[in-house]
Design a binder for these strands. Structure first.
Lengths: 128, 128
DNA sequence: AGGTGTCAACGAAGCCTTTCGTAGATCGAC
DNA sequence: GTCGATCTACGAAAGGCTTCGTTGACACCT
């Protein structure tokens, strides 16, 4: 059961995961208030219940207001979605995606430095 | 009507778009044969009909076997999906996505060179 | 104890995607 | 012209996502 591969989170699920990643363990009320989209309380509740069934989140029922925690680390989900997009749209080439991403918007000097660092380590690897 | 923003293509639609980008104008039969997923002929047909209604593809009905062409350039769709993912999962930072993408898989020397070139032009820009 | 507010649970509805069976049109071969 | 193959069109079904109304449980306050 726990070996099942997790499904790609839907849009609404991703919104909720982002809140849980940001705030840590939270109640439905807290998530609902943080999400400033127009969705109603019961909608968020229902979605989080479904996410529990799917194994995307964990629920602590010891309090009256159940406390939810993400079971999928942010990094994993990011990796999953990126490789998914790479396969489906960029012919399996992560570099193509990177090029596309970088040419769309502005990037801070700090991030540029990080990129340079990664790029150079990749280049060093390629020489071997 | 033609000014409407195009919706995000679904998974099945993306598969078909990839074939059209690759082969150029194609009939349903050709698309169906190129796609080596298990989907049936009528399934592909129906999806392409829906895509026509949505404005994702164009149809030339002058032949008995209608000829379909993509109306959305590959680049546009890639850009759309990338900015979408950046906003929904990477807090609006394209560089974060790029870093994630590059650290997942191998990248060819040619692509590395391209990346370096882009990176350097971005760095030059940042100095101004 | 009674009233008020908060919460989870349930179920249903609406919509979209994906799938395919069937029917009708068209073409080429015989 | 008829037969068989190919193609589009139509409609419907199944499943998933998202939404929310309603209900019943529980807790706190007076």
């Amino acid at each position: 059961m726990s070996r099942d591969k997790l499904p790609r989170p839907t849009d609404a699920e991703l919104g909720i995961l982002r809140v849980l990643w940001e705030r840590g363990a939270s109640t439905v009320r807290e998530v609902h208030e943080t999400l400033q989209d127009g969705s109603g309380y019961t909608t968020v509740l229902k979605t989080m219940q479904i996410m529990t069934e799917k194994g995307l989140v964990m629920r602590d029922e010891s309090q009256r207001a159940h406390v939810y925690t993400s079971r999928v680390p942010r990094e994993n989900t990011q990796r999953q979605l990126v490789t998914d997009l790479v396969d489906r749209v960029f012919g399996g080439s992560p570099a193509r995606l990177a090029l596309q991403a970088l040419s769309t918007k502005k990037t801070s000097p700090e991030e540029l430095a990080e990129l340079r660092q990664l790029l150079e380590s990749l280049e060093k690897e390629a020489e071997s």
